[in-house]
Simulated scan of single mutants.
Amino acid sequence: PGKILLDVALAVALGGDCLADVAMLRAEPAVFGPVASDPTVSRLIDALAASGEKALRAIRAARAEVRRHVWRLADREAPDAGGTVTVDLDGVLVIAHSDKEDAAPTWKRTYGHH
C-alpha cells in the first residue's frame, strides 16, 4: 500500500490529475520500479476510503516519520536550518467533464475543481 500511495503522489507531482496517471510511472520501470495496475490502485483507494480516520492517521504517521528522517539526513542543508521556512502556495485547477464530485465553473472559465 505504501508504494502505491507513493506512486500516486509522484504521478500528481508530475502533473497527473487522476489515478490512471500512474501509467506515466509504469512507462519508466528503470526509474520507478514496478507500478501497480490501475485496478489495484483503485482497490487500494477504495479500501483506504472505507477505513476513514484510521487510514488517515496511518498515512499521516508514515509521512511524519519519513519527514523526520529526511530532515535528519539533510542536517544543515535542511530548508529550515536557518530558522526560516518559506511556503510557496499555488492553486491548481482540475478539469472535470461532468457534475460528479461537486465540480463547478472555475475562475478560468473551465469546469472542475480548484
Rank of each mutant, 00 (worst) to 15 (best):
L25G: 00
P79L: 12
T40Y: 01
H113D: 01
R57V: 13
A74K: 14
A55W: 02
D88Y: 14
A13D: 10
K100L: 10
A78H: 14
R67Y: 03
A47W: 00
V35T: 03
R76M: 12
V31T: 15
L48G: 01
R76H: 14
E53Q: 15
P34I: 01
R72K: 12
L93C: 08
A27C: 02
A30H: 15
A64F: 02
D21P: 00
L14P: 00
E77W: 15
V31L: 13
T86M: 11
P79N: 11
E101M: 08
A74C: 09
L10F: 07
L25Q: 04
L93N: 06
H69Y: 09
E53G: 04
H97C: 04
D80N: 11
L10A: 08
G33H: 03
I95N: 07
L14Y: 09
H114V: 07
D46H: 09
K54D: 06
W71H: 11
K100Y: 09
A47E: 05
L14K: 10
T40V: 04
L10M: 12
D99A: 06
R76D: 12
A23R: 08
A36I: 01
R26H: 04
V12T: 12
V94A: 09
K54T: 13
L48W: 03
H69Q: 12
V70R: 15
V8M: 14
G83D: 10
D102L: 10
G83C: 06
V66S: 08
H69E: 13
V92K: 11
A103M: 04
G91V: 02
D46R: 15
V85M: 12
A9Y: 08
E53P: 04
I4G: 02
D38Y: 06
A103C: 03
T106F: 06
T40W: 02
L93I: 13
H97P: 01
K100S: 08
T110W: 04
P34F: 05
R60D: 15
R109Q: 11
V8P: 00
F32L: 06
V22D: 00
L56C: 11
I59P: 00
P34C: 04
S98W: 01
K54M: 04
R57A: 11
L14C: 07
I4K: 05
V85P: 02
E28N: 08
I59F: 05
T86E: 14
A78W: 13
A58W: 07
S98E: 02
M24Q: 15
L6K: 12
P29R: 09
A55F: 05
P1R: 14
A36Q: 01
R68S: 09
V22S: 00
P34K: 11
P79T: 10
T86A: 13
A20N: 10
